[in-house]
Design a binder for these strands. Structure first.
Ligand SMILES: [Mn+2]
Ligand SMILES: [Mn+2]
Ligand SMILES: [Zn+2]
Ligand SMILES: [Zn+2]
Lengths: 135, 135
DNA sequence: AATATAATAATAACAATTACTATTATGTCG
DNA sequence: CGACATAATAGTAATTGTTATTATTATATT
């Protein structure tokens, strides 16, 4: 069914060796260093494929462009509302939440999406402008 | 500073009398029944104003168009991945989460965004197509 | 009523993403 | 090994959701 390609392999390799939860544009620029004429459509298509296969995770919360994570271990994230940095939160995912909500509501709860936000270490002091976007 | 307008008042009134967490387009169509020549830009501008004033809540998670809520009580939501319906979850918001994450990580956590997903009562049985979108 | 200016309608611009299509690469099978 | 079927690609166009622009209108204040 799904064939391999150097484009897809490069993307997965790049996603696995960073912990920065990069954006589509960052991934595009990074892959272009190896495959200069890769198309942006290929980036999007392969990100969706890799996500569907469960090889990567999509961090898609409104307001900011989607970010991707090569670490598939279930874990939560923190997003800096000044610089946009996304970092991992240690500590396990609360799977009981889904069960509790399902029992209380009668809904068929399959999961939840949770993201924390605030100021990162670098941005804690000076809360004005957007200093280092896409970090 | 901020002046009143029949457009803004109509929007707030409409948002307060529904519990459907409507989309921008739904709100647009609804207001147009009162003010047929209202501009979509006005819808967006007033939604952002009302949000900034704390009069409404924006439910903006990636993947689906933004929804709005005239109920400003802090509460969580459930989204049906088949029909798109958004409904309220009873039970209080977990403010301790932010504190715990802040202590563990050293980050300045200001809040979190949480949404549950799964199949609603209507969609629990037949999980194929998209039956009633924007409900 | 005259004035200052916030809000509006209409439209253009924008950013993120998806769709299309002719060409190329990959895996399969004789 | 070829020949074949077709998945994946590059390049481009189109779509979607949203914000910016601008001339006009409505609102609040004197
Ligand atoms: Mn992560
Ligand atoms: Mn609600
Ligand atoms: Zn930061
Ligand atoms: Zn449903």
């Amino acid at each position: 069914m799904s064939r391999s390609s150097k484009q897809k392999e490069a993307m997965l390799r790049i996603l696995r060796r960073t912990t920065s939860h990069p954006s589509v544009d960052w991934i595009y620029e990074e892959v272009r260093r190896e495959i200069p004429n890769i198309s942006l459509g290929t980036i999007y298509r392969n990100l969706n494929m890799l996500k569907a296969e469960g090889a990567i995770i999509e961090l898609s919360f409104g307001g900011a462009p989607t970010r991707y994570d090569g670490n598939c271990q279930p874990h939560y994230h923190f997003r800096c509302i000044k610089c946009g940095r996304v970092c991992d939160i240690d500590g396990q995912v609360n799977g009981d939440l889904d069960k509790r909500v399902a029992e209380d509501s009668g809904l068929e709860v399959l999961g939840h999406r949770l993201e924390f936000y605030g100021f990162c270490q670098d941005c804690g002091g000076c809360k004005e402008s957007n200093a280092h976007p896409d970090r």
